[in-house]
Design a protein around this nucleic acid. Structure first.
Length: 247
DNA sequence: AAACAGTACAACCGCATATAT
DNA sequence: CATATATGCGGTTGTACTGTT
């Protein structure tokens, strides 16, 4: 018997756009049984859809917290900043923007923002600054204590010369570091767009009321040192505010 | 009004990773 | 430890909608 890739028997599985009745059935099912166990959802809801399709429909369209309509200016700013920090980690970016789904953001990035950047004929440098993501990559999507990634961290020595490479976080995985990752994306700006502070949970203040110019000047002199490693990308992230003014 | 082009976004697909057995 | 299964993610595609000629 032909099977779909996820192992479900291919018994007249429906594809394409969802009807209102299907939406209602799915919504009712989730209300009753809660999210998760997607494998059972099509059966419970009486839908001829695969579990992936159900999950996607719920997460991207039916979920009650989803915000629809135009992206606001501050959301766009945040997307650009987070993309610079995280790259195409759409789910992580979406996690920082309430009401927006990874799919929404990905679509918006690909259709709106890329086009916007393409329309800047004489600003190659600015474009490359935004598009050239120096990605902080918390490699695994979730941190299970049995994850292969953690095993690798425990067994391989930290290679300081490759700090912030795209392989993995070259930090010992202490509670403090985990907290630092959690707080990484929380920052505050004043009315001029200057970054006021980026702090770890341990209260380690990385930047204090620094203007872009101050930071750039300090960086040229090699004075900006953030946290325990080479976190120069944080400074680039700050610089992004000046780039954003051009959008 | 019809044909066509461009755009936006929902949905699908393949893969990586986590979890269960 | 190996294998099977489930889950979630990012890239890509398909199509409905809108604007232009």
């Amino acid at each position: 018997m032909a099977r779909l890739r996820d192992g479900a028997p291919n018994l007249g599985v429906r594809k394409g756009s969802w009807s209102k009745e299907e939406d209602d059935r799915l919504r009712k099912c989730i209300d009753e049984y809660g999210e998760g166990r997607w494998r059972e959802v099509p059966l419970r809801a009486g839908l001829k859809r695969c579990r992936k399709s159900c999950r996607l429909r719920w997460l991207n369209y039916l979920h009650p917290n989803i915000k629809r309509g135009e992206f606001e200016e501050d959301e766009i700013d945040l997307i650009i900043r987070l993309h610079k920090l995280l790259g195409n980690r759409w789910s992580l970016i979406a996690g920082k923007i309430p009401g927006r789904t990874a799919n929404d953001i990905k679509n918006y990035w690909n259709s709106h923002l890329m086009k916007k950047l393409a329309s800047w004929p004489n600003q190659e440098q600015t474009k490359s600054k935004i598009l050239d993501t120096k990605v902080f990559k918390p490699k695994p999507r979730t941190l299970s204590m049995n994850s292969e990634w953690l095993k690798g961290l425990r067994t391989s020595p930290i290679n300081e010369s490759h700090a912030m490479s795209d392989k993995a976080i070259p930090l010992s995985l202490t509670e403090e570091k985990i907290s630092w990752w959690k707080s990484l994306l929380v920052d505050v700006q004043d009315e001029n767009g200057n970054l006021l502070s980026v702090t770890s949970s341990a209260g380690e203040e990385f930047l204090m009321s620094s203007s872009v110019e101050d930071i750039e000047a300090a960086r040229e002199q090699g004075e900006v040192s953030v946290g325990g490693g080479d976190f120069g990308d944080l400074v680039l992230d700050v610089d992004l505010w000046s780039l954003l003014e051009k959008i």
